[in-house]
Amino acid sequence: MLNLIRKDIVLQKNTLVILLPALLIALLIDRSIIWVGVLFSFAIIMQSFALDEKPSTNLLMNSLPYTRKEIVSSKYIGACVFTFIILLTIVVGNIIIHREITQLDQLLFIAGVIVVFISFAFPFSYLFKSQYLMIACGVLFVLYLVLVNKFIPDLNDRLRAGVQTILSFDNSVLYAGGILAVVLLYMFSWMLSIRIYSRKVF
């Protein structure tokens, strides 16, 4: 399985070579780059995923001595590795460029958002195709607008209030609970993807 993860990193080598300097440039301009970090991580993870989506590549991977469980798991672990590489670049970049240590809660927030994204994106892409992700996001956004305008006009306020309540909790409890919830979500998504992929026909 390590081979599969290594394979993904090697295949994304060129993308990393472009992406990581771009990340450093972004750091130069603005030191709070949470959303850039999230975007870059997500982009590289999904690009690596999309590369293996072709039926012929699935044929190859499954003919090699790997199980379907390993093939899916390599994507989930690989996503963590890519995120780690991005985070590491941010931390190191901040030390070199701004001579300061990035706050832990910022890093955790980036990781958390990516994990949540991936938890939905992977099973969806295994079930359909990653290219439909954008369409799905569009549809969700429209649904959200409809919801806000027609049914719950104060949805945004409610959400804001909810976030405030969470943030007013004691920090350690908040973090522990948040991390636990995100990890559980990831695990659940992982198991779900294995189920979906093991029934896939290509």
Binding site: N3, V10, L11, L51, S56, T57, L60, S63, P65, Y66
Partner: peptide, 23 residues
């Protein structure tokens, strides 16, 4: 297989690096 199942954008040497550790 009767059609190409290998990654098309990489070279044979790179493909070998991917296949080799599997066996």
């Amino acid at each position: 297989f009767d059609h190409n199942v290998f990654y098309e954008h990489i070279t044979l040497a790179e493909m070998k690096k991917i296949i080799k550790p599997a066996y």
